[in-house]
């Protein structure tokens, strides 16, 4: 869905769900993931629908991912770092007890 106007330069490599993703130094984790072709970053709490970054400035919390073992980090407010381990928070089933 997105492309880079110039090559990332590959200054930084992060890992998303175990796979290496090249990013430009200074990228937010969310930007790096979108540029690498990830569409959804997490799934919603109630219906487990796929969700993607919506605001990119820290308000919508739709870019929540696990970063270096810590869940629910805002990927749009976190800058990539070499070797960073990112896990998408995709649940296949809705949260138990979510009655709607």
């Amino acid at each position: 869905m997105f492309r880079r106007l110039r090559a990332a330069g590959g200054e930084v490599t992060i890992h998303v769900d175990g796979k290496p993703v090249r990013a430009a130094a200074g990228d937010s984790v969310a930007a790096a993931m979108l540029a690498a072709g990830f569409t959804a970053l997490h799934s919603s709490a109630v219906s487990a629908s796929p969700r993607a970054p919506h605001c990119m400035i820290g308000n919508c919390f739709e870019c929540l991912v696990e970063i270096d073992g810590l869940p629910d980090r805002q990927a749009c407010l976190t800058t990539v770092a070499e070797g960073m381990q990112v896990r998408r928070q995709m649940d296949e089933a809705p949260m138990e007890g979510a009655g709607v």
Partner: peptide, 17 residues
């Protein structure tokens, strides 16, 4: 996404649709 969000991607990282 927000129009501003797309603009943020452009300004911050040179990433465009």
């Amino acid at each position: 996404m927000g129009a501003g969000a797309a603009q943020t991607l452009l300004k911050a990282s040179g990433i465009v649709p």
